[in-house]
């Protein structure tokens, strides 16, 4: 395994433009998807935890089940939506980073919703009386609980990030793996593997893993620090 590691190191050390561009796009797509999934998923998950309405049980089951949605299927759904022959065709978004963000958002959203619901439900059990006493109704409790559950919620967000940064099926279909435009770490790895450049593929994998490790270490550190500080 000396080869791939040496290749990986040389790649990073060279500061190769194409590589930096690929890393940048990967981060942009994945973080973009995580951010959108949070903006939608956090309030929705909290609402599922607090609100009682017909169909709530079904929604919980569906969002739990969708955590296992195969990336290729998410990719196909977005592909059919964005294709020129699809309903959103006129937006001309297929084979763009935006399309990739959309597909990954679809992948992560169920994770964020389900984990948020479970965190907020637990917190609500603890906070319910106190918040009602202070004068916060269920609706007003949503941002309070999200903020007070921020350390636990970070875990859910990280799980989403992990899924997005690792997947290749969805971004390959909707992004098209266009060099310099929609090529990410994972699609580049796929391409190099299919070219038989296993060394380069593994080197890219090492770079990806290093990035993921760094981000997770950062998030874990922040979590530990917050736990210590916030009790």
């Amino acid at each position: 395994m000396d080869g791939p590691f040496a290749t990986a190191f040389t790649l990073i050390a060279s500061g190769d433009d194409a590589l930096l561009q690929i890393i940048g796009l990967s981060l942009r797509v994945t973080l973009g998807a995580v951010a959108i999934a949070c903006v939608i998923g956090l309030p929705l998950g909290a609402a599922l935890a607090l609100a009682r309405f017909p169909g709530r049980g079904a929604m919980i089951v569906v969002s739990n089940a969708l955590m296992g949605l195969p990336p290729v299927v998410a990719g196909l759904v977005v592909y059919l939506l964005l294709s020129r022959s699809g309903p959103l065709g006129p937006l001309a978004l297929l084979f763009t980073p935006t399309a990739m963000i959309m597909a990954q958002t679809l992948l992560i959203l169920p994770i964020v919703i389900s984990l948020t619901r479970s965190v907020v439900e637990d917190l609500w059990a603890e906070y319910r009386e106190q918040l009602l006493s202070l004068g916060a109704g269920r609706l007003r409790a949503v941002p309070t609980l999200l903020w007070d559950g921020r350390v636990s919620l970070l875990t859910g967000v990280l799980a989403g990030f992990g899924r997005a940064s690792a997947e290749v099926g969805a971004v390959l279909i909707v992004g098209g793996n266009i060099a310099g435009h929609t090529r990410t770490m994972t699609t580049a790895i796929t391409l190099e593997t299919s070219r038989g450049n296993l060394g380069l593929a593994v080197a890219l994998g090492i770079v990806l893993l290093t990035l993921t490790l760094t981000l997770n270490a950062l998030a874990w550190g922040v979590g530990q620090w917050a736990r210590g500080r916030l009790g």
Partner: peptide, 16 residues
């Protein structure tokens, strides 16, 4: 009315 408050045996303090 809003002008009432309650202190619980084990008050829940916000994580702030």
């Amino acid at each position: 009315p809003e002008a009432q408050a309650m202190v619980f045996q084990r008050p829940v303090l916000l994580r702030r």
